[in-house]
């Protein structure tokens, strides 16, 4: 009973996280301005980290944890670099 409950709630959580990623992708694609796209990308990275963690719980393997850590790190570096670029890119114009 509880096993089924857990597996169903993992599935539901994954669906919710996928929907959240879809929202972030919408913001990434539609803009309207560059900072909105970067914000969407940052949210996408965080949601992807959480989705990988739920995959880890689903399969019972700790392997997913490491990929989640790498995604979270990449998200930070990418967002920081893009935000810096937004400030400097305008200056060069």
């Amino acid at each position: 009973m509880t096993t089924e409950l857990l597996s169903w709630s993992i599935l539901l959580a994954q669906i919710l996280l996928t929907l959240a990623m879809a929202c972030a992708v919408y913001r990434l694609l539609r803009g309207p301005r560059a900072q909105d796209r970067v914000l969407g990308l940052d949210t996408l990275y965080v949601n992807a980290t959480m989705l990988l963690l739920t995959f880890g719980i689903r399969t019972g393997s700790t392997l997913y944890f490491e990929s989640a850590l790498v995604i979270a790190l990449l998200g930070f570096v990418a967002t920081a670099a893009l935000a810096k670029f937004l400030m400097r890119g305008e200056v060069i114009e």
């Binding site: 996280l17 929907l19 929202c23 972030a24 914000l39 949210t43 739920t54």
Partner: peptide, 11 residues
Amino acid sequence: AGLALTGSLGL
């Protein structure tokens, strides 16, 4: 997951 979806809906 619900909080993450709420945050992304806010976007």
